[in-house]
């Protein structure tokens, strides 16, 4: 009996993690792709660790992608100390190059945008980072 309880207790975290991954995969694959413009939220901490921390520039984002032409600002990213903060994880080796490129983001060739998978009522999930309309990997080669 004790062995069975132990087996259940150890299986449960594994099942939870797998189920969570599958849920996130489903959410990512079944949402509508929307493109939003990006701006830095804090120039000192643009690349923190292995992720880019940014805010969405709603003024430069095309709201006609969304229902009733209204940008659902509250469904994107987490509320932080300095407004809603979003993350996009990148390998550490590209952090410096991306940081330099981000400083030139007003140049049309290096505008930063993020493609989100958006499901109304379920929130949004970042899928791809675009620099000048292309995948970010092409800009840091």
């Amino acid at each position: 009996m004790k062995t069975k309880i132990l087996a259940v207790c150890f299986t449960l975290p594994f099942v939870c993690l797998v189920a969570w991954t599958l849920c996130l995969t489903w959410q990512r694959n079944h949402g509508t792709d929307v493109k939003v413009a990006v701006m830095g939220y804090d120039p000192r901490d643009l690349l923190s660790g292995h992720y880019i921390q940014y805010q969405i520039d709603w003024a430069k984002t095309d709201c006609s992608q969304f229902e009733n032409n209204i940008c659902p600002k509250k469904n994107f990213c987490r509320e932080g100390r300095w407004g809603r903060q979003c993350r996009f994880y990148v390998p550490e080796e590209y952090a410096k190059q991306l940081d330099e490129l981000f400083r030139k983001r007003n140049n049309p060739e290096t505008t930063f945008e993020v493609i989100y998978s958006y499901t109304p009522g379920q929130g949004a999930m970042a899928k791809e980072l675009l620099i000048g309309g292309k995948n970010w990997r092409e800009s840091v080669r």
């Binding site: 993690l17 969570w20 991954t21 990512r28 990213c77 979003c86 993350r87 996009f88 970042a126």
Partner: peptide, 29 residues
């Protein structure tokens, strides 16, 4: 694993969410 899932799906949850998941799932151990 929680960190890797967050990294793969670009989740923007902070330490609070991470600690909740880790503490609860790690309790049996």
């Amino acid at each position: 694993t929680i960190g890797l899932i967050g990294q793969t799906f670009h989740l923007d949850g902070g330490w609070h969410s991470f600690a909740t998941a880790w503490a609860l799932l790690g309790l049996p151990f």
